[in-house]
Each structure stands twice: as structure tokens, then as C-alpha cells.
Simulated assay, not measured.
Amino acid sequence: MRQTLIELLESNSTHADEFQSRFDDVQDSQRPNVVTVCCSDSRVLQDHMWGNDHPGRIFTCGNIGNRVVQRTDAGEVVSGDVLYPVAHTGTDTIIVVGHTGCGAVTATYDELTDGVSEPAGIEHCLSLLKPRLESGVESLPSNLARAEAVNRLVEYNVDRQVEFLADSDDVPAEVDAVGVVYDFQDAYSDRRGEVHVINVNGETAVEKLREEHPRIASRIGRLWEY
């Protein structure tokens, strides 16, 4: 048995000691306030980034590229992972969480610019990102370094995922769709791990967002207003 599993189980014992009474109110049902769609990158701490230690508060989804799109025989639809809490637990806020240095966005960028070869499962994921990032790649300023280009496409991808939610008949109009970026590369500020709001219900203009949401004005910002 690998040491990694042993260490994880030891950490879980501490977790279980701390959480003995925290499941009392959610034994039989859940009513999460928000569903987050995060990239499954190991550097993206899905609950910890919000300081969450309350079971039942956040419904978390994860996949490479923080995608809300699922391909079915009927066409592209909002992923059931995202839609479930909206449809069944009264969740009224969806947060799409991109992050700086995203590997899925990087791979999609490379696929669109140079062509890459990936295993079929990864290629399927990239195929859901490529049509949404293609116009972003074409619009990038030509003088950007690769890392800067990727981080701008991270924002572009978040915008396209929020747009898909807003356009879907399966997401009620009263549900808020918010796009954010989790930064651990000092791209937005020197506070590593800070979340920056870039999109609220399809609005992406920074000054307008700050006017409309003054309580979080300092947390609203973008690298790219295209």
C-alpha cells in the first residue's frame, strides 16, 4: 500500500474527529446555497478556497476546464452535475471557477494553434472547450507571452460557460450565474489563492460590475476586456 493512502487516511481521522456533530442537520437532505463548477486541478482547493467547513453549504463539481456543458444524443446541454442542485435542492447560485495556469485551457490553446495528440478521454473534454475558445484565440493580442495568453483564455472560457448557463432553458431566470478566477500565479494581485469576480449573469464590464455590486468592488477585476 502506498504511503500516500496511509497519510490520507490519517488526515481523514482528524477530519472525522472535528466533524462529528457537523452532519446533524444534513443527515437526510441537503439545501446548498450554491453550486460551484471548478477545474479539477489539484491546486484548486474547491471548498477550502471559500473557507467552507459546513457540510451541506456548497455543492461542488469538478472537471478539467470547469465545463458546464455536457454532450448528449439530444445535443449539448447543461451538465447534470451542475443542474442537479438547481433542479432538486433549491440552489439559486452557480459559480464557474476558472484558475490561472489552467492545464485544460493550455491544452486547448495548443490544440488550436499547433495541434496536439491526447488520449480519447482527454480529447473528448477538449472537444467541448475548443469551439468556445476558438474565437478567443483568434482575438488575442499578438504580443502576449504564452502564459499571459492562457490566463486571458481562462477568463474567456469562464465567460463562455456562464453564457451557456444563461442561454439554457434548463436554468431558471432567477438563478444567478457568476464567473470567477482563482489566482495562485500573482496574475491579479499578490494575494495567492484569492478569487476574482469577472462575470455576473453575463455582464463582464469591470466598471459596470463595480457600480452594480459595490460591496465586492475590490474583488472585481479582469486581465482582458475584449
Rank of each mutant, 00 (worst) to 15 (best):
V197I: 15
E18A: 15
D176C: 05
I94S: 08
M49Y: 01
Q20R: 14
H99Y: 01
S42K: 12
V175P: 07
A87I: 02
G103D: 07
R67E: 06
S42R: 09
R71L: 04
E174T: 11
H54D: 14
I216T: 11
V195N: 06
A187Q: 13
K130G: 01
N52W: 05
D73L: 08
G65W: 02
W50Q: 08
V44C: 02
S168L: 11
V105R: 01
Q3A: 12
E207I: 01
M1D: 13
P131L: 04
T108S: 15
L140Q: 03
V77Q: 09
M49T: 06
N52M: 02
Q70I: 03
T14S: 10
R215A: 06
L9P: 01
P172F: 09
T89C: 14
L209W: 01
S218M: 00
F23P: 07
M49K: 08
E211K: 13
E123Q: 14
L5Y: 13
V34N: 06
N52A: 07
V77H: 04
D170N: 10
P141M: 11
V35I: 12
S117H: 09
V178R: 07
G202P: 09
R210G: 01
D169W: 05
N143Y: 08
A16R: 13
R192M: 11
V96Q: 00
L112W: 03
N143K: 09
R146Q: 14
S13H: 11
G80C: 02
T93C: 06
F184L: 13
A149H: 00
N12V: 08
Q70K: 09
L45M: 14
N143I: 06
T89G: 01
R2L: 11
R31G: 07
R219W: 08
L209K: 04
K208Q: 15
L45A: 14
Y156F: 15
N33R: 15
F23H: 13
E134A: 15
G80D: 10
V150R: 00
G136Q: 03
E118Y: 14
Q185I: 04
I94C: 08
V116K: 02
L140I: 03
E18D: 15
T100R: 01
V178M: 10
H88G: 03
A120C: 04
T204A: 10
D167F: 09
R22Y: 09
T113P: 02
D73M: 05
R22K: 14
A217G: 12
E123P: 04
G221I: 07
N157P: 07
E123T: 13
S79P: 05
L133G: 07
Y109I: 01
T89R: 10
G65T: 05
L153C: 10
N33S: 15
D190N: 12
V197P: 05
D159E: 15
R31H: 15
V162E: 09
V195A: 03
G221Y: 01
E155P: 10
M49E: 00
H15I: 13
A173V: 12
P214L: 00
V78R: 01
